[in-house]
Design a protein around this nucleic acid. Structure first.
Lengths: 337, 337
DNA sequence: TTTCAACGCGAAAACGTTTTCGAATTGATT
DNA sequence: AATCAATTCGAAAACGTTTTCGCGTTGAAA
């Protein structure tokens, strides 16, 4: 079925293509009478302008792209939800791509730039030390918004949480519950979020007059359950007197809990555990998991709002002044602490 | 930064726009010499044709759209992953929209049709009794692929699992483990998948000479954890001698398990539990959950493959013969049975 | 009666491709 | 030398919009 065009409408109403187009785009130099006539007819025959032609002419696609990690993850799922909701409100569509490393990230950005999306939302991969691919975006008319794992040096607006503060809250909570020998299962050495959470952990110990011990820190790079289990095993074999664990992920926390339960080590009496993210099941586990709520949906909405702002100033040919929006996190206390 | 056009390339090489375009599109009437010259130059200046113009001219977008339920769900996350992977291989992009009811579903389909996506992948909402919105798709040049919750009457290719058989496997498994009084926590009354799973449950009982009892069936429409807990509570208060539960979702199974544990009812000795979907955490719970693995990623890939086939025949102006691909499921036995 | 501004509309160019068709060149065949 | 087919290329139309600019028509002001 061939879809109607402006030309068809114009012919049917004995008007010019220009007039019809103007009526649909709320130009002021069309009499309200003909405008109404056009609008009525357009509604009747259910016409909607061809997106390709509009995009070609206006040089904007009304599409944004987001690149998410290649694995299924509750946090990103919520984030996506927030972005899509806000996008729909503003008549934007969202293209989702996946990546977990620098090379792929680069390819995906190319893909999106080629599609001439109006905005790209990106959380950097673990091995994205280089940011040349981000500079490619700045050179185009596409707005870049970084979130979660952002680069300090790359120029763009950003939406993040205060990882350091959140980690601090988590550790302080354990201390307040009487824990003194608190271990930390951290992420890799590179991503800024892992560094920040680690710093938050360390500073909070020191602020409370507790000595920081490097051998209490284990790296769980993948942040999955198995690594949490393994780390807990190693840790407790070496230091049976540990009384708290702050994990950088709910999953690693879950793994740690599995080991503790298996060893009949009571939670939270003997060892308190705090996770990070407030993943869906953390409330359903037994014991349920104390964790830091990372409000994905809210972040998603913030990302899109910031995008709209930046796009507007870009269109106005003005210089964008990049903003960094910090989303508040919250400690959710449950049975594990 | 203005991006290059065919015209720019042509001028730089002293050729016509036509020739350049043809070289890039592998036409046969270009000498290999000039073709190479063009390809080299194009690579050097990193030119890529404007998507809007191409789409406008060719009437195809190289984009597909998928509509997923409005909530975060592990299965759909995996499914999406499969679709996106396969899409990327074939240079397609994927637009993701959300819906959980008929009205919204209709709007989203309109959005996608307006965007002139080449394909729409859809799992029907619970209250989509009507399928007029699907017929709108057939009238366009967009390929529809239904998956998971499909309509029997709507004409399109489909990708599904054999819900009846899978349910049968689950129930037979419980029977084989010596269970006789097996309850079923089912989905709503409408979606075909819920009906099919129920039928599988009932038939399998009867085949084994076990009387079907309506009061052993509880409806957990939302399929969440709370409903599973509540249903288990009601069920066991009324029938303390229940020895098996087949839940239509891992989440409801989890809820049931929580109640059982709380009541100190031993799993699987006293009551065996089987879920459905093989959701990420079902392996991590304690006891870990026996469940039916619903291979989301595989389904996603199958969906996209089928789309490519149907699109091809559509382009050739031939009549599409709709296919229904049934993906195999598998029982994953764990501690809960 | 002239002048002028405001109003309502349309012609035409532009966005950047793809594709049809015909023209020019070449080399081989009579 | 003439004919023909194959080869290689380009002119121009088409895809469906948006936007600039100008033109004719009003009605009011001078």
């Amino acid at each position: 079925m061939k879809s109607k065009t402006l030309k068809d409408i114009a012919k049917a109403l004995n008007l010019s293509v220009t007039t019809v187009s103007k009526a649909l785009n709320d130009y002021q130099d069309i009499s309200s009478a003909t405008k109404q006539r056009i609008l009525d007819y357009v509604k009747k025959v259910d016409f909607t302008p061809n997106t390709f032609a509009t995009s070609l002419r206006k040089k904007e696609s009304k599409i944004v792209g987001i690149i998410v990690p290649a694995m299924a993850h509750y946090f990103f799922s919520k984030l996506l939800q927030g972005i899509i909701e806000k996008a729909e409100e503003n008549n934007y569509l969202v293209i989702v791509l996946r990546s977990n490393n620098y090379e792929l990230e680069k390819i995906q950005i190319r893909r999106l730039l080629k599609q001439k999306v109006d905005g790209i939302f990106l959380s950097l991969a673990d091995n994205s030390y280089d940011i040349d691919h981000l500079e490619e975006i700045s050179k185009s008319d596409t707005v870049l918004i970084q979130f979660d794992r952002v680069s300090k040096i790359a120029q763009s607006s950003k939406v993040v949480i205060n990882d350091r503060e959140a980690a601090s809250t988590a550790v302080q909570h354990l201390i307040d519950r009487g824990k003194r020998k608190i271990a930390h299962f951290r992420g890799g050495l590179m991503p800024q979020v892992a560094i920040d959470r680690f710093i938050g952990y360390r500073k909070t110990l020191e602020k409370n007059g507790i000595e920081f011990r490097p051998d209490y820190v284990h790296i769980c790079e993948k942040g999955n359950e198995t690594q949490g289990y393994d780390a807990a095993q190693k840790l407790l074999k070496q230091h049976p007197d540990i009384d708290g664990i702050f994990a950088h992920t709910d999953m690693t926390a879950l793994g740690a809990i599995r080991y503790l339960k298996q060893q009949k080590i009571s939670i939270p009496e003997k060892v308190g555990v705090v996770g990070f993210s407030n993943w869906e099941v953390s409330a359903l586990m037994s014991p349920s998991l104390t964790t830091i709520d990372q409000p994905g949906k809210k972040m998603g909405k913030a990302i899109f709002s910031q995008f709209l702002k930046d796009l507007k100033t870009l269109k106005a040919k003005e210089k964008i002044e990049f903003k960094t929006k910090v989303i508040k996190t919250q400690l959710i206390q449950r049975q594990s602490s």
